[in-house]
Write a protein that binds this DNA or RNA. Structure first.
Lengths: 347, 347
DNA sequence: TTGTAAGCGTTATCAA
DNA sequence: TTGATAACGCTTACAA
């Protein structure tokens, strides 16, 4: 591979001159500049990244750690982070911890498993001397990602950082539950069942709170029998549907689209139809929701916005350089209801 | 950030000794080794990646260039490449060209657009001195990725390399079309319609060939009216369905699941049902296919296998080191039919 | 305007 | 078993 020294020899100048030209320093004559650039072009010279990185302390690289690249939320978030960074002239480097591949569903609350792969991931990025680290969770919760005295700017995305020293960018679950419930109420529903996620899950709890708030505001008595906890899987939506139907609800708010699909399964099997015999709403706006029949009204998670916002915050904090920047915060991005055909107007 | 020199000073030894210990060289006394390792542990010393990379010529990094990370095929392929590399003690670095974000659907055949982002991507990886480059296409075709005299081991995945100097790992489309057609024939179908992709597309053409071959083998006359070209979108499946129904086919083979969903739309609208009134098969085994009702029989694209195989070939070629390794080839990975409920047995 | 030389942190060679 | 030293390719302060 061709080096700066070789270019210098070819042009009969010193390496400092080459370096100055390549870095846009002004103190070079136009003649030599042209000569050098020509040779650079011809030889296809590429600066050696390692030598450059060693010399300057700034690398202009943002490290991204993802819990799992094949989790459906990860690619769109990461994509937008990369896009924003590219626009702002930062590079990114992605470390994929592949949690699902390693432990299926058993790692969500397992601090030990997490740390066993997180520490090497962080070390790797530190040794690359990234300017900042963005942690992209694959599953919402409170995570202990970085020690309080972490030396590199860092943040957590799609989950809450345990330490308040780090900014978190999350979806606004309480508002999400609230909005969807209000939406159903506005369509004339008052007996609104919920197929929630697992009971101890953060998304579940916050969305339930929003649900409760909306009911309260409309003077609807909260009935605990109308809430059924599932496990986010399709089958548990099926189960919950049967139970809620017995309760006589007119609408069912499912906390993800997969469980809503389970509800559709139940309805299909029993000769009923969403949007006619009963109203169904989902959450996530996954690909499948517009393929269900009738198409599912759901609450879209704004992955793109989450990604962009995260990158924006990270890069802003790098620009500011304000030493002990105590501006860590929790940024909540609202979801957006996508109206389709599964909710009937009762009025 | 702590350096080797500081560790050396703390331990009262030289940096060479530290380096030897850290790199598992044998010529160090157990006493000093322990002492040093203890300090390393305590200080949380991390070798500087740039210094290391500069010194050794090998970086043990495989560069991955993806056309688009949010294309559905990309994450699972990349995931497996990363997994395999990790197992073999290689790092990976991912460059996302974000073609869709930049040009929507207008870049597939646009050599200029491709090169305008590919060249910087390649340059970036070269300047990082990666040991090899894996190009992951987002859309199957013949691509001119690397010049014939490219100095770094490189390969193309999910598309065919124009130059025969580089190995390509692709799906076996002809076999895919053949298998699916045979499958339908084995269920007693003889009038088999096809909703193909765009006519000039490589997947389309090869799968049609396979279709033709299967018909031929069973002595079924090829009827051009039974092939309708779509554009891979749901709507074109809807259109094609109406047309093929008029032709009196008993089964429709759709070249992707999205168009199969369009067929379902048509059937739904006309009070018909897949697997009863007519048989439907898809291609891709996308998430949605098991949510359609009845669940769609389709041909799964083995992304994981493609990823693993690619990484395997790349790393093997790096190990071999055989100078001008003329073993470039086209590796075809077969698809696998996933039987669900959309194909009726006519026998 | 251009060149010299030091130094970034590590590893490899060779001498002690 | 350990240490001194050179070298990797680049940037930069300073000298010419």
């Amino acid at each position: 591979m061709i080096t700066q020294k070789e270019i210098a020899d070819m042009c009969g100048v010193s390496t400092s001159t080459i370096s100055n030209i390549l870095n846009g320093k002004l103190k070079v004559s136009e003649a030599t500049r042209q000569r050098v650039l020509e040779v650079v072009r011809k030889t296809g010279y590429q600066p050696n990244y390692f030598a450059q990185g060693m010399r300057k302390q700034k690398t202009n690289i943002i490290g991204i750690i993802t819990e799992d690249l094949i989790q459906f939320s990860s690619p769109p978030i990461i994509e937008r982070i990369m896009a924003y960074c590219e626009d702002m002239n930062y590079r990114t480097i992605l470390v994929n911890m592949r949690m699902y591949d390693k432990w299926l569903n058993t790692w969500y609350e397992d601090e030990k498993k997490l740390q066993s792969v997180l520490q090497p991931a962080i070390q790797e990025l530190l040794s690359i001397k990234v300017d900042g680290i963005i942690y992209v969770a694959g599953h919402g919760r409170i995570i202990n990602c970085f020690p309080d005295d972490f030396k590199v700017p860092a943040m957590v995305v799609y989950s809450y950082s345990k330490s308040s020293k780090f900014t978190s960018v999350v979806i606004d679950d309480e508002k999400g539950g609230y909005d969807m419930t209000r939406y159903l109420i506005s369509r004339g529903h008052r007996k609104i069942g919920v197929i929630a996620g697992t009971a101890d899950n953060m998304h579940t709890q916050k969305r339930c709170l929003g649900y409760q708030k909306a009911l309260y505001e409309d003077g609807i008595l909260y009935n605990p029998d109308w809430i059924r906890y599932g496990d986010w899987q399709r089958e548990s939506g099926y189960q919950g549907c049967g139970q809620l139907l017995n309760e006589g609800v007119t609408a069912i708010f499912c906390m993800n689209d997969d469980m809503a699909a389970g509800v559709y399964d139940y309805l299909y099997e029993h000769g009923m139809k969403a949007g006619e015999d009963i109203s169904i709403a989902g959450y996530d706006n996954m690909e499948i929701s517009k393929y269900l029949k009738p198409a599912l009204t759901t609450n879209e998670i704004p992955f793109s916005e989450i990604g962009t916002k995260s990158a924006e915050i990270m890069i802003r904090s790098l620009m500011e350089e304000s030493e002990d920047n105590e501006s860590a915060e929790v940024v909540r991005i609202p979801c957006q209801i996508i109206e389709r055909d599964s909710v009937r107007d009762l009025k």
